[in-house]
Simulated scan of single mutants.
Amino acid sequence: MQDLTTWTNAIRHDNLGQVLKSYWQLTKPRIIPLLLIETAASMWVAAHGQVDPFLLLITLLSGALAAASAQVINCIYDQDIDYDMERTRHRPMPSGRVQARDALLFAIVLAVLSFTLLTTFANLLSACLALSGIVVYVLVYTHWLKRSSSLNIVIGGAAGAIPPLVGWAAVTGSLSWAAWVIFAIVFVWTPPHFWGLAMVIRDDYAKVGIPMLPVVVGNEATAKQIWIYTLLLVPTTLLLVYPLGVAGALYGALALGLGSLFLKKAWQLLQTPEDLTRARSLFKFSIFYMMLLSASLVIDSLPITHQLIALGQAQINALATAFACL
């Protein structure tokens, strides 16, 4: 503890710019864009490709504020282990640039702003869902599971699957089966996504006693779990096409193509689970996968896409009729 005190007393802000930078870093901004992409995709599907631009802006802003609040609280809670890991000890909390009291106040302000914006400009359901995302991430994942169970990312990963529910509720004021399927897609995608990274930084987690799956069971067993979850992911994505029918052939084809690539990555890792280059590659591809899958949902939902597909089908039918008459 003396070393931690010495370290935290060593760094101070010199100007306002450094203060703002530290608080920005507390929110872990690199994590947030993917959550917003998932939210936007859900909104487009819920609105049948015609989203109110103002509602979209408010929902994404509120979602960013809620995610930022959760990450700030995570930084407060994990500052002890962040200090012990070389890759994280320069973060604002363990380095002493931001004190816990100030960070907690910042997190509360972010959460209140998120809840207020959604309640005022969307609806209470979406606001409560965003708030529940913070609670699940902080209490279920960070406080309860992260330091106690190798299932931490499986159960706690539900927090990362809540943003699509927020987006759907913001548009419709309710939650349909389609919304829960999008939730399930993100939920099933999260373990193979995160475990790929956990395999790469396994030693860091082991050093601070965090029971991430690769630390507890090793890389070979983790690679098997990644393979199983990826196998589950592909058919889950197709539920939006059948039986729900909220996505069409374009999304279905892209989901199959992206899923096949994900399965290939997972299979390659399964064959050589100690190859950390492949683990890192799978992790990076998983981000690319979710971004493109979300984009394909948006494109598939657009009225112009439906018109073009209908036009193409009409042309094909006309050609088939012409050939039949020959």
Rank of each mutant, 00 (worst) to 15 (best):
F187S: 10
V186A: 09
M43F: 02
I76A: 12
P92D: 10
L118Q: 03
A40E: 14
L113G: 00
A111C: 12
G17C: 06
S69W: 02
T237Q: 13
V216E: 13
M291F: 15
R97D: 02
P94T: 05
I32C: 04
A221S: 15
Q71M: 13
V72Q: 05
W24Y: 15
I37D: 01
A223M: 11
R89P: 01
Q25G: 08
Q99S: 08
W177S: 09
S149R: 01
A247H: 09
E86D: 08
K264S: 14
A66I: 04
L125I: 02
F106W: 08
L131P: 11
G248L: 06
L139A: 11
L4Y: 07
S286Q: 05
Q307D: 15
K207N: 11
P192T: 01
M212C: 07
L65D: 07
A68L: 07
E274H: 14
Y242C: 10
F54C: 09
Y251T: 11
D84I: 03
S149I: 05
P33R: 10
N74R: 09
C325V: 15
L65C: 05
V171W: 04
S174C: 06
S149K: 01
F115C: 05
A249W: 13
Y23V: 05
T5P: 12
W7C: 00
M291S: 14
A10M: 15
M212F: 14
F323S: 15
I37G: 07
A223C: 14
I32F: 03
K264C: 10
S176N: 11
L36A: 07
T172K: 13
L124G: 03
H143G: 07
A310Y: 10
F121H: 10
A178P: 04
A266F: 03
G248F: 00
A247L: 15
L282W: 02
N152Q: 01
L293I: 06
Y289L: 14
G257E: 14
A130P: 05
L240R: 00
L232S: 04
L34F: 06
V154C: 06
